[in-house]
């Protein structure tokens, strides 16, 4: 459960102040699947970073599962990022020297989980994203779609509540892009909250709830009715 109230984010660029987010209110329930669309510079990535606790708002209130995150210190924020939030990026951000399995294992290592419980989890999630036979391949030996599936596996191995995807198909051809979206939708079906920031209307339109942003503000927030979604 996410609740944003009057979120502002102001960047200082030289002596000019740039208002990236302007009084944004947004409530996201558990298990929702929503897309955020809008032109470049509309603030959608900034919003995603704030939702993912990578960035802090200049003002406003962000409640995650009833707790005010704006009062937390860096360490608490890092712990919540590790436990409750999964990130998927346009450029995958896999670590090149590590194998697919090692990349996926990384969040568990950071959470100081014991190797004995880590390995089965990695195996299970590799199976889920359909990459068992690619476990020991390095990212440069994988296709773009496979890399993004590794990234999704990494983002979800800690069983987070929310998956935040920033242009997840932006660097993929349409076929592997569709596979990646399908994978995320499957995860959404099993209860994961999925939020996708995208330029691509084909991707954005699939989500039941669509948010449109312009100049740092939400200008449209539409939810398809169940019969329409089908």
């Amino acid at each position: 459960m996410i609740r944003l109230e009057k979120i502002n984010r102001i960047f200082q660029v030289g002596d000019q102040q740039v208002r990236a987010l302007n009084d944004v209110d947004l409530t996201i329930s558990s298990g929702e699947y929503l897309s955020i669309m809008g032109p470049s510079g509309s603030g959608k990535s900034t919003l995603l970073n704030i939702l993912g606790l990578l960035d802090q708002p200049s003002s406003g209130k962000y409640q995650l599962d009833g707790r005010d995150t704006t009062q937390m210190d860096d360490e608490q924020l890092a712990r919540i990022r590790g436990r409750k939030i999964g990130f998927v990026f346009q450029f995958f951000h896999l670590i090149g020297r590590l194998s697919a399995a090692e990349n996926i294992e990384l969040p568990l290592i950071l959470a100081e989980e014991a190797p004995v419980t880590r390995k089965p989890k990695v195996q299970e999630i590799l199976h889920r994203v359909g990459l068992e036979d690619r476990a020991n391949h390095r990212p440069d030996q994988l296709s773009g779609g496979q890399r993004q599936r590794v990234a999704i596996a990494r983002a979800t191995i800690t069983r987070p509540d929310v998956l935040l995807a920033d242009e997840p198909t932006g660097n993929l051809d349409s076929v592997s892009g569709a596979e990646v979206i399908q994978l995320m939708e499957t995860l959404n079906d099993s209860g994961l909250t999925v939020l996708i920031v995208t330029h691509d209307p084909n991707v954005g339109d699939r989500a039941p709830r669509k948010i449109k942003m312009i100049d740092g503000a939400i200008v449209a927030d539409t939810t398809k009715r169940a019969d329409e979604a089908a």
Binding site: L54, A78, R81, L110
Partner: peptide, 16 residues
């Protein structure tokens, strides 16, 4: 730099 950013995004504390 990107690796550091990623580590932080997936839950690494500054100390780690």
């Amino acid at each position: 730099t990107e690796e550091i950013g990623l580590l932080k995004a997936i839950g690494a504390r500054s100390q780690q």
